[in-house]
Simulated assay, not measured.
Amino acid sequence: MINPSKNFSVSSLKVNVYNSEAEIARAAAEIVYEYLYNVLQEQETASVLLATGNSQLKFLDELISLGGIDWSRVTCFHLDEYLGISANHSASFRQYLREKVEQKVHPQVFHYIEADAQQPLIECARYSELLQTHKIDLCLLGIGENGHLAFNDPKVADFNDPYTVKLVKLDEVNRQQQVNTGYFSNIEQVPQYAFTVTIPTICAAKRIICLAPGQRKAKIIAQMLRREVTTTCPASILRHQTQATLFLDADSASLI
């Protein structure tokens, strides 16, 4: 087990700081492995809500390499997807999760947001109903450079959202981040709208693991942990979640 170089709490949120992204990936994988193993010892099935993005890649590889989880008893969901994008598009989160997770561990079922559905509002309702019939045992998160969780950007985030899944317009910071991380060549290619699981749904998960490595995240992490809890930094709501742990590396923790 890799021990953090520093650990502390901000309100109810536990914060672990490691020396590198590689250490985050290994430490988080070991914690998630132990948690999921114990959940499956106590109940027949587990439900997991997965994030995508570069912050998750090393972690997912580490988790899968540990083995020992009976994925045939795990139901998977994902947090968000671009409106209108096809399932085989190189930037599709469905494509990412099929390659990085489903094809490697073969869960009991992976419920995907069908982003190119002909009636997007009906798709929101369908996916909402699926989520509502499962208690989410584990939610895996990243944090956007604007503080978003999933695609809950500051202008559309609602800590008391009545919806489970909704359609949102993406802000320019979010769309540019997708370009900067290599998923699109330019901002014009990034869809303007997306499906997202809402913040109350995320916060209802029994366990939340949030990974936020890298220097690009340092400014928003400082805002998240030091300023008030507000939708101007949606990730700040994690400070009220006793079941959440935030994993930082030396770069992302450099301003706190």
Rank of each mutant, 00 (worst) to 15 (best):
A91K: 12
A91Y: 11
S92Y: 08
F93C: 10
R94C: 09
R94L: 10
R94G: 07
Q95P: 02
Q95M: 01
Q95D: 03
Y96M: 11
Y96K: 00
L97I: 07
L97V: 03
L97E: 04
L97S: 04
R98K: 12
E99N: 14
K100I: 06
K100V: 02
K100T: 11
K100N: 13
V101F: 01
V101C: 04
E102H: 13
E102Y: 12
Q103R: 13
Q103F: 08
Q103Y: 07
V105M: 10
P107Y: 13
Q108W: 02
V109W: 07
V109P: 03
V109S: 10
V109A: 14
F110E: 03
F110W: 05
F110H: 02
Y112V: 11
I113N: 02
E114F: 14
A115D: 06
D116N: 14
D116P: 06
D116S: 11
A117F: 04
A117W: 02
A117L: 02
Q118I: 13
Q118Y: 12
Q119C: 07
Q119L: 12
Q119T: 11
Q119K: 13
P120F: 00
P120V: 00
P120Q: 04
L121F: 09
I122Q: 15
E123A: 07
A125D: 15
A125F: 09
A125E: 15
A125R: 08
A125G: 09
A125V: 08
R126L: 13
R126M: 12
R126K: 14
Y127I: 10
Y127Q: 08
E129C: 12
L130N: 04
L130Y: 01
L130W: 04
L130Q: 00
L131D: 05
L131G: 10
T133R: 13
H134P: 05
K135M: 00
I136V: 15
D137W: 00
L138G: 01
C139W: 03
C139P: 05
G142Q: 02
G142M: 09
I143R: 04
I143F: 02
G144V: 04
G144L: 02
G144M: 03
E145A: 00
H148T: 01
H148P: 00
H148D: 01
L149Y: 04
L149W: 01
A150I: 07
F151A: 08
N152S: 11
N152A: 06
D153S: 07
P154I: 09
K155H: 15
K155C: 08
K155E: 07
V156I: 15
V156C: 09
V156K: 05
F159H: 04
F159W: 06
N160C: 14
N160Y: 11
D161Q: 00
D161C: 09
Y163H: 02
Y163D: 03
